[in-house]
Simulated scan of single mutants.
Amino acid sequence: MLEQFIYIADMIGVISCAISGVLVATRLRMDPVGIIVLAAVTGIGGGTLRDMMMGATPVFWIVDNNYTYVITITAILTVFWLKHIHRSPPYLLMILDAFGLAIFTIVGAQKALALGFSGPVAIAMGCITGVVGGMIRDLLSGQIPFVLQKEIYATASVLGGVLFVLCSYLEFTPILAMSIAISGTLSLRLSAIYWHLSLPVFASDREA
C-alpha cells in the first residue's frame, strides 16, 4: 500500500509540474518540441538529479516508461485545454508549482531514507527533488528561478523535509508522515502566494 501511495503521489506531482512547464512554454510561444522539453524537465528533472546523486540508477523514469507517457499525454491535453480557454488563470502556474514542490520534496526525502541515507541528506534530497525541475524550466525559458528570488519556495521544501524526517524518527506510519509533511509544505507555499509573503532581499548600491 505504501508503494502504491508513493507512486500515485509522484504521478500527481509529475502531472502538476508538467502542466506548469506547458504553461511557461506556451506563454513563450514555443514549438511542440519546446513544450515537451519544458514539460519533461519540470516533471522529472529534480528526481533525475536526486537518483544520480544517490546512485539509484537507472533513474526512475528510465525503468518505468509510464512517466514519459504521462508527461507526453499531459502536455498534449494541456495544449488543447489552453487553446479552448484561450487564457489560463494568472495564479495557476504558482499553484501547480506548489503542489509539485510539496509532493516531490516528500517523495525525494522518503526515497533517501528508504535507501539508508541520514536525515540531513534526506532533507537535502527532498529539496533537490522539489526545486530542481522548476529551476531548469525557468533557466531554459530565460527567467530567474523561483528558488533564487525572494519567494518562500525552497524554505517550504526544507520545512517539508524536516517534518517528514521528524515524523519518521518518531515512528509515525510512513503514509501519515508523508501526508503531514506534504500538507506542511503546501500550506506554507500557498500561504506565501496568497498573502504575498517573502524572504528579505539584499542589495548593494556599490559598483564593483
Results as ranks from 00 to 15, higher is better:
84 H>Q: 07
124 A>R: 04
59 V>K: 02
122 A>Q: 09
23 L>W: 00
56 A>V: 08
78 T>Y: 01
128 I>K: 11
5 F>Y: 14
197 L>I: 10
51 D>W: 03
36 I>H: 14
49 L>N: 10
48 T>A: 11
81 W>P: 01
157 S>K: 05
39 A>H: 02
158 V>P: 08
75 A>Q: 10
154 A>V: 09
128 I>S: 11
73 I>G: 05
46 G>V: 05
192 A>Q: 00
40 A>N: 02
101 L>A: 08
205 D>Y: 04
34 G>L: 08
64 D>H: 02
45 G>I: 02
77 L>T: 11
193 I>K: 00
203 A>E: 09
52 M>T: 00
188 L>C: 05
192 A>W: 01
19 I>R: 06
17 C>Q: 11
102 A>D: 01
112 A>N: 06
152 I>H: 01
176 L>G: 02
177 A>F: 07
19 I>G: 01
173 T>A: 14
145 P>M: 13
3 E>L: 09
15 I>L: 15
16 S>Y: 05
156 A>N: 12
141 S>A: 14
49 L>Q: 10
154 A>E: 08
84 H>N: 11
130 G>L: 10
104 F>C: 12
182 I>A: 00
181 A>C: 12
197 L>W: 07
89 P>C: 14
156 A>S: 15
159 L>I: 06
158 V>A: 15
29 R>M: 07
143 Q>W: 01
1 M>P: 13
184 G>K: 05
123 I>M: 14
151 E>V: 09
18 A>W: 01
136 I>V: 14
43 G>A: 15
134 G>M: 09
60 F>G: 01
199 L>M: 13
25 A>E: 07
31 D>E: 11
172 F>P: 06
58 P>A: 03
170 L>D: 00
77 L>N: 07
151 E>A: 13
77 L>H: 09
119 G>S: 12
101 L>N: 09
88 S>Y: 08
75 A>E: 11
169 Y>S: 14
82 L>H: 04
124 A>W: 04
69 Y>I: 14
113 L>E: 13
99 F>D: 01
128 I>M: 10
6 I>G: 04
29 R>H: 15
130 G>A: 15
87 R>K: 13
152 I>W: 10
39 A>F: 05
187 S>F: 14
175 I>A: 07
27 R>M: 03
128 I>V: 15
101 L>F: 08
21 G>V: 01
6 I>Y: 09
64 D>W: 03
96 L>E: 00
138 D>C: 00
201 V>W: 10
41 V>I: 15
132 V>Y: 06
132 V>S: 12
109 A>R: 11
194 Y>T: 04
117 F>L: 10
193 I>A: 02
38 L>V: 08
28 L>N: 10
70 V>M: 02
155 T>F: 08
135 M>N: 05
11 M>N: 00
3 E>A: 11
108 G>L: 14
141 S>W: 00
104 F>L: 11
53 M>F: 05
43 G>M: 06
13 G>E: 06
47 G>P: 02
143 Q>S: 12
151 E>T: 08
171 E>C: 11
164 F>C: 14
39 A>C: 12
190 L>W: 01
24 V>L: 04
96 L>Q: 02
114 A>W: 02
